[in-house]
Amino acid sequence: MEDILLDVLTKNGLLTGFAVIGFTMLVSYWLSSRFTRGKLHGSAIAIMLGLALAYVSGLFTGGQKGVADVPLLTGVGLLGGAMIRDFAITATAFGVHFQEIRKAGASGVVSLLVGVILSFVVGAAVAAAFGYTDAVSMTTIGAGAVTYIVGPVTGAAIGASSEVMALSIAAGLVKAILVMIASPFFAPRIGLDNPRTAMVFGGMMGTTSGVCGALAAIDPKLVPYGAMTSTFYTGLGCLLGPSLLFLATQALVD
């Protein structure tokens, strides 16, 4: 009996994923209304639960993909994987007004450039403060503070050590997680309640997973605007990291 049940659950992984995530949402929204009277949004709690589950799973399986490394839960990996994620993010654009996007055009572009360069500079400075003073390590860790994809792409291009690569990925992950969890709390202070600011938010923070998770908790209507700019961020980072930013760092350090 037990074997047959496990077999059904693993064979139909995506369905198991729907059921597990659905249950997680149910629990989160219940916790939200029962203990925070809706002040801490259900989706924010669900994301924290997701991250906590990923941490526990990582400890037990030793894998890199959170709960997706648990054989029974590979379907969650499919549900939250790149294909469905891109599909669902794009769907949120349905009903978006193009005028809003055009209005925020200039600040959106500026936010992308400032976001990438500023994150890089801060990351590289922290790297230097911790004794990673050579140009390659500073650039790689700085690029990791841009996003956890820009870090390894840049590091591979300029020949960073695997220790530094791991640090750079970790820096990017910390950023993604922090954006997801902390932004909803500070959103009112920076006026993050309209499409324009959401686009700037996407451009400044850049980590698509972090930005979309945060906006989902702040106001789901803002998701498409933040996603729109943040989707260009990683590309811009991969472009600038191994080229301009590396050369600039080299010129400063050597």
Partner: peptide
């Protein structure tokens, strides 16, 4: 929910 599934597979 897709974002939650995504969060659940972060390293």
């Amino acid at each position: 929910p897709v974002v939650v599934a995504m969060a659940a597979q972060q390293n």
